[in-house]
Amino acid sequence: MSRFKEKGKKEIPAINTGSLADLVFILLFFFMVISTMRESTLLVKVAMPRATEVHKLEKKSLVSNIYIGQPLNVAALGTESRIQLNDQIADVSEVQAFILAEREARNEADVPFLTTSLKVDKNTRMRIVTAVKQELRQVGAFRINYSTTKAQTAL
């Protein structure tokens, strides 16, 4: 039974910290994968069309988003395309109030540079898009952006 006998007093070994780096890397990759930086949860389905002639929007703080598409909750809202402003489904008539609220939240000097980004599902009919554009014209939000994903090759 000498095999299991303690051989006198032993020093506590130092904990090997070599794998700490690996743990940090695993955390890094984990957060890189799960983080999608979206400010508002989408209530409508938005699969954006592709285009080649796209520009990047420079100042993200000066962009207000309008989402248009089929509601995700088809059972409650039907299949007709709807507008989403901030975190809720809205009507066309509420667009002007939304733009005014967005202006209110910004610095006055920045107001002329406010851009409205239209994030519209590619299967949407133009009727609702035209209606929103008319509202934007009425309220004086002339800078708009048709949000698209960049296509590498010609369509």
Binding site: V24, L28, M32, T36, M37, A51, E53, V54, H55, K56, L57, K60, V63, N65, T115, S117, L118, K133, L136, R137, G140, A141, F142, R143, I144, N145, Y146, S147, T148, T149, K150
Partner: peptide
């Protein structure tokens, strides 16, 4: 980690920019 956090762009919006007429 700090470097990549600084340099990574958080899905910037892109699209076709237009000006609506008054």
């Amino acid at each position: 980690l700090a470097f990549f956090m600084m340099t990574s762009s958080m899905d910037t919006d892109s699209g076709i920019v237009r000006r609506l007429p008054p």
